[in-house]
Design a protein around this nucleic acid. Sequence first.
DNA 1: CATGAATGAGGCTTCATTCAT
DNA 2: GATGAATGAAGCCTCATTCAT
Lengths: 203, 203, 203, 203
Amino acid sequence: MSTAKSSLAAQRAGAPDKREAIVAAALDLFRHYGYRRTSMEDIARAASVAKGTLYLYFESKDQLFEAICRSLADELARALAEADARTLPLEEKLLALMEAKMGFVYDLIFSSPHASELIESTRQLPSAPFEEVTAMFHDAVLRLVRQGVRNGELDPKRAGLTEKEAAETLIAAAIGAEKAADETTFRKQLRSIVRLTLRGLRP
Amino acid sequence: MSTAKSSLAAQRAGAPDKREAIVAAALDLFRHYGYRRTSMEDIARAASVAKGTLYLYFESKDQLFEAICRSLADELARALAEADARTLPLEEKLLALMEAKMGFVYDLIFSSPHASELIESTRQLPSAPFEEVTAMFHDAVLRLVRQGVRNGELDPKRAGLTEKEAAETLIAAAIGAEKAADETTFRKQLRSIVRLTLRGLRP
Amino acid sequence: MSTAKSSLAAQRAGAPDKREAIVAAALDLFRHYGYRRTSMEDIARAASVAKGTLYLYFESKDQLFEAICRSLADELARALAEADARTLPLEEKLLALMEAKMGFVYDLIFSSPHASELIESTRQLPSAPFEEVTAMFHDAVLRLVRQGVRNGELDPKRAGLTEKEAAETLIAAAIGAEKAADETTFRKQLRSIVRLTLRGLRP
Amino acid sequence: MSTAKSSLAAQRAGAPDKREAIVAAALDLFRHYGYRRTSMEDIARAASVAKGTLYLYFESKDQLFEAICRSLADELARALAEADARTLPLEEKLLALMEAKMGFVYDLIFSSPHASELIESTRQLPSAPFEEVTAMFHDAVLRLVRQGVRNGELDPKRAGLTEKEAAETLIAAAIGAEKAADETTFRKQLRSIVRLTLRGLRP
DNA sequence: CATGAATGAGGCTTCATTCAT
DNA sequence: GATGAATGAAGCCTCATTCAT
């Protein structure tokens, strides 16, 4: 990711490269081996630092994990904001948002056999960072639904749903795609889910 | 401690009471505290047996976990078979199947804060037992879709999907409901998802 | 200490020998190397048990230490009670009490270069056990002083002290002997201190 | 951080300020938190220098501790010399010496809950500095006893002691006062001990 | 001289598993 | 079969010390 940037300035400021290296190494290991099967020793080795160095940047294994989650949440927020900024037809726009959100989860997390452990820990320790970006996502979908209603493209009432319920249902259904076994399946299922649920909301 | 207890019948069958007690205790603890935070000591205490006894019935903690999964898979299979045997209108029947499957996962597993850890472990260790019942479930939904097509109630082609793809999409979408925060939400979302996706498959 | 006593009964009761072995090993090591320079590993090795076994008998290093202090306090209490029970002339009786108390401290604790660390820790963690026996000791000396006054052997008022102050002063002065460099010096100094202070209290 | 500070004079002498600051900070921390609970990091922070700087002035944590002891020993030597120089009646003079010695220990060291740890370390690492001043103290008391004998105020033989033994006993008894729980008690007990032991040495 | 990031040995504790009774 | 005391590998974390800047 960061290739040629270890300028003197960066070095002076507490070697942020090292922090990044630790986060990267830890994320990689957590994804491949799970939280509990990854020891601080492993992380240190993977990041090419000494065990003690980890504790210069993170107070504990848990806090390192939390930092990773925050970092992931930030990245997800960026991807979502980008998708939200695009101007596209309804279905395309919804798909873009869904792909940003679910694809992120799928790619970075559920791609690993220990993803759910990551996600799980997410619920216990550092829920905050993810809650924020999740709220942002729900809001974007709700706005899209409202716009569709105004355009006459959608009519949630026909399906017995309020606008908000419709948005929540669209999201809930799309979440199912995260569990796809491979990326191709994931994209296909996500597209199908979006198409079917949108068709179900048509006037 | 326990010298002359348990009936002869129980004795003959290898004291199945004890094995069941262990499984029940372990399931309970795993659900409440997660796999890694539950020690064999805890399980033994909860099952009112000695630690060593656990190893008379299960080779290791992992194998105990696998046994739990098998037990859960059996229970799920029973619930699914029951739902599949009922005669109901298309939407009701699909909802019954979905509730059997997703509701089971939701109730028994996702209801706990450590559910995903359980599920995750599922993927690593004992995928087999769940794969079988999952295949059974997919088959039931596919049969339902085919029947709907024959009845003229569904037309996957209109949505650009084969019958099999339609079934997979219905399932994938419904899976999203598992993540609901509470049971009421779960049931509402599952119903909405089923309704919307089915509407999307109408001719 | 306990040579031939590991009867089956003893074994069954949680192998108290082992607990004693641990306490003995730990006391020895603490005395020779100090609390912080003695690792649980060292203690385990000296007691011929595995590291984990220590935690079957004591919750933590600190609690092991506290147990040692309690054990010492009990031993001291026994020695004091024994001395207090003897019938002797005033000076001899006082000396017997002092030797029981100061000698105990001297022998078991101050004999080691890390004694004060033991004592110090004593003040922080488990002061209770020692406080009790200390109170018992002060009480015994005070009773002795009062008896001396009744007998006409002592007259604290001549030195401007109440009976209680006289007792406290006798004790305080005797404490100084604990710091003697070797046992011979200790006994000689204690005797001299007792004699001089008692002479100072004569009518 | 500190670029252009400290006067040229200070610079020339090797910045003695800094060395003193370190010693002062370390003494303070050792007294409040004990040797092992005080990290080099803590000392550096309290002295407002970098951790590495400590090692420019002291080879190790132990040597820093030794330096502190030497510094304390010097201070004690000054106090003793001052008391020894005064012209006072026997009891007053002895009390002055005792207060200088025991009071110093009491104030600077036993005043802290970790005092004995300090004292203990004293015995291991840097006994030398304290031995010298201790010898000086014993010598002063011995001279005082001899002078008392010449004056006819004291007669150790009556108590069965040589002059040297009498001096050692006076000191040993006074040491007990160091353990007083508070300064008022300390002063009272020291005075009582001196009075009683001196009375015991009277002709 | 001064800095403080980096090091890594070493400490305490947990827990899955074994085995003598 | 049943027990639970014992084991010891492995984990997380601390901190005295070093060294490049």
